[in-house]
Amino acid sequence: MPMPLLPQQIAPVDERQAALTEAHLSGRIGALMDYFLALRAETDAVLAPRLAAAAGKPYPYGRCTEINSDLFSRLAGRVKEPATDVDRILRDFVAQGESSERSGASCAVSISRTPSSSADCTWTSPTTPSW
């Protein structure tokens, strides 16, 4: 039996995850990058004016927890009630990854604010978040 993941530990990608990524996400990297960068811009627009400097450094420094929480909340709401094509793509990706064991959900979305030509989006989840 494999060792359980630590809190916040990203699950290794297995064959099933790779197949789901190929089926739902791989051909849509540009649209996903635009979607997640716009989501981050919305979060920044809301949080930056509200949060004081952390340890003398301006937003976003020292605000990872707040940014992560806001992004995940926005993303969960959009996946729960999809209004755009990308919302629906992500909803279908998550739905296809559902497991009978829904406890201990962990989800990681890696987004670069300065995407390179080889930009990569990764979403890994050992179990499906309860959206």
Rank of each mutant, 00 (worst) to 15 (best):
residue 114 T to A: 03
residue 120 D to M: 14
residue 44 D to S: 13
residue 6 L to A: 10
residue 95 A to Y: 04
residue 51 L to I: 08
residue 114 T to W: 10
residue 105 A to C: 08
residue 108 A to F: 06
residue 130 S to C: 03
residue 125 S to R: 12
residue 128 T to C: 10
residue 92 D to F: 05
residue 27 G to H: 06
residue 22 E to Q: 00
residue 41 A to F: 07
residue 17 Q to R: 12
residue 25 L to M: 06
residue 61 Y to C: 08
residue 65 T to G: 09
residue 47 L to A: 12
residue 75 L to V: 11
residue 48 A to L: 12
residue 110 S to P: 02
residue 46 V to E: 15
residue 122 T to H: 02
residue 8 Q to R: 05
residue 63 R to F: 04
residue 116 S to Y: 06
residue 43 T to F: 12
residue 43 T to H: 13
residue 10 I to N: 07
residue 131 W to Y: 14
residue 26 S to R: 09
residue 117 S to H: 10
residue 42 E to W: 12
residue 87 D to V: 11
residue 54 A to Q: 06
residue 125 S to P: 03
residue 70 D to G: 02
residue 84 T to P: 13
residue 32 L to H: 02
residue 6 L to I: 03
residue 68 N to S: 12
residue 64 C to L: 11
residue 130 S to E: 04
residue 2 P to D: 03
residue 104 G to H: 14
residue 122 T to M: 07
residue 43 T to K: 10
residue 108 A to N: 03
residue 18 A to Q: 00
residue 122 T to P: 02
residue 76 A to Q: 15
residue 67 I to V: 13
residue 42 E to Q: 15
residue 23 A to C: 09
residue 106 S to C: 13
residue 66 E to T: 07
residue 25 L to F: 03
residue 16 R to Y: 15
residue 13 V to E: 11
residue 49 P to W: 08
residue 79 V to W: 05
residue 65 T to H: 10
residue 89 I to M: 15
residue 14 D to I: 01
residue 64 C to K: 10
residue 17 Q to W: 09
residue 52 A to F: 11
residue 95 A to V: 02
residue 73 S to G: 07
residue 103 S to C: 13
residue 109 V to E: 02
residue 124 T to F: 09
residue 126 P to Y: 06
residue 9 Q to P: 05
residue 54 A to F: 09
residue 78 R to N: 06
residue 5 L to F: 14
residue 39 L to P: 00
residue 88 R to D: 00
residue 43 T to L: 13
residue 63 R to N: 08
residue 50 R to C: 00
residue 45 A to G: 11
residue 52 A to V: 04
residue 108 A to W: 00
residue 126 P to L: 09
residue 113 R to P: 10
residue 110 S to M: 12
residue 38 A to N: 07
residue 1 M to C: 04
residue 51 L to A: 04
residue 71 L to C: 15
residue 124 T to I: 02
residue 43 T to G: 15
residue 94 V to E: 00
residue 105 A to M: 06
residue 18 A to N: 05
residue 27 G to R: 06
residue 25 L to I: 01
residue 48 A to H: 11
residue 37 L to R: 06
residue 18 A to G: 03
residue 75 L to Q: 07
residue 19 A to I: 06
residue 55 A to N: 05
residue 53 A to Y: 06
residue 43 T to E: 14
residue 125 S to W: 09
residue 131 W to E: 04
residue 50 R to P: 00
residue 33 M to I: 05
residue 101 E to Q: 12
residue 102 R to V: 04
residue 35 Y to T: 01
